[in-house]
C-alpha cells in the first residue's frame, strides 16, 4: 500500500472515511474507506450486490451516506453535493432503457453535459456546440448527432453518455459498467475510447466493471468489493491473486467461480 501513499502525495481528489450507506433495510456500504489520487484510473470490481455502484454514487452525491465522511475535490459532502461540484464530476450510469419517443436528439443529450457549467438563464454558446460536435466526432457518432436518442442502439447510447460526461470537462469521471451487455467489438471500441480520454484528459477515472480482464488492463488501481466492504485494494498484479479472488467470489455455500491461474496471469 506504500504505492497508494505515493499516489496520494500527488493530491487526493476523493477521500472516503468509514462511509455507511443504507437503502431501506439493506446496508449497501459498511464502513468503506478509500482515497483516490488525482489522475489515477481506479477499477471497482466484485460480485453483484457488493456495493460498487453505491461507492460510485457517494462521490457525486447521488448516493447519501448515513455515517462517515466523504471529501471530493476539497469539498466535504456532509451536507450533500452542491450542483456546482456535481458539474465537475462526469457520470455515466448503467445502461438504461430510453423511451424511443423521447423528444431529444443525441447532440442535445451531449450538450446536457454543459448545462451545469452554464447555470440558469444562459444558453449554450457556439463554443459549447463546437465542443459537443467534437466529442461526437471522437466517439464516432457525428453522423447520428441529430437522431433521436431513443432510436440509437445500446452501444451508441453508451457512447453518447460518455460524450455527455466528457462535455462536462470533468475532473473526475465515474463510469458504471460502461460496456455491460455490449458485444465484444463495441466493448473494445468503447474501452479504447475511455482509456484514450483518460490519458488525454487530466481527470481521475473510477470505473465499475464485472470484467476482471478489462479492469486489470486499464486500471492502475483496483478496489475489490464484497458485501458492502472493500476486500482488498492495490495494483492489479498485487490484488489479482487466487486466494483473494477465491474469497471475493465465494458465495457463502463454500462454492465459488474462480478463473484459472493461467487466465489471471493473462489479465496482468
Amino acid at each position: 500500500m506504500t504505492d497508494k501513499k505515493d499516489l496520494a502525495a500527488d493530491g487526493v481528489v476523493i477521500e472516503i472515511e468509514k462511509a455507511v450507506v443504507s437503502y431501506r433495510e439493506d446496508v449497501a456500504l459498511r464502513g468503506v474507506s478509500l482515497s483516490v489520487a488525482r489522475g489515477s484510473f481506479v477499477g471497482i470490481v466484485g460480485p453483484n450486490g457488493a456495493g460498487k455502484t453505491t461507492l460510485l454514487t457517494i462521490v457525486n452525491g447521488l448516493g447519501k451516506i448515513i455515517q462517515g465522511r466523504v471529501n471530493v475535490l476539497g469539498h466535504s459532502l456532509a451536507r450533500g453535493c452542491p450542483a456546482s461540484l456535481r458539474a465537475r464530476i462526469g457520470y455515466v450510469p448503467q445502461m438504461q432503457n430510453i423511451d424511443p419517443r423521447m423528444p431529444v436528439c443525441a447532440r442535445e443529450v451531449v450538450m446536457m453535459g454543459r448545462y451545469g457549467h452554464l447555470g440558469f438563464f444562459r444558453r449554450p454558446s457556439r463554443d459549447d456546440w463546437e465542443l459537443v460536435d467534437a466529442l461526437l466526432e471522437k466517439v464516432g457518432l457525428a453522423h447520428l448527432a441529430r437522431r433521436p436518442i431513443g432510436h440509437l442502439s445500446g452501444g451508441e447510447q453508451q457512447r453518447v453518455a460518455i460524450a455527455r460526461a466528457l462535455a462536462q470537462e470533468p475532473e473526475i469521471l465515474l463510469l458504471d459498467e460502461p460496456t455491460a451487455s455490449l458485444d465484444r467489438r463495441v466493448k473494445e471500441e468503447i474501452l479504447a475510447q475511455v482509456s484514450g480520454f483518460h490519458k488525454a484528459g487530466n481527470h481521475t477515472t473510477l470505473m465499475v466493471t464485472h470484467e476482471m480482464d478489462i479492469a486489470a488492463r486499464l486500471c492502475d488501481w483496483l478496489v475489490l468489493m464484497k458485501a458492502g466492504r472493500i476486500l482488498a485494494q492495490g495494483k492489479p498484479e498485487d490484488v489479482l491473486q487466487q486466494e483473494i479472488l477465491k474469497v471475493l467470489y465465494e458465495n457463502g455455500d463454500g462454492q465459488y467461480y474462480l478463473p484459472r491461474q493461467r487466465r489471471i496471469a493473462n489479465w496482468i
Binding site: N60, L62, S84, I89, Y91, Y115, G116, H117
Partner: peptide
C-alpha cells in the same frame, strides 16, 4: 424530462 438522474449528475 430526459432523465432526472442525469440532470442531477450534470449539475
Amino acid at each position: 424530462i430526459f432523465q432526472r438522474e442525469v440532470a442531477l449528475a450534470v449539475g
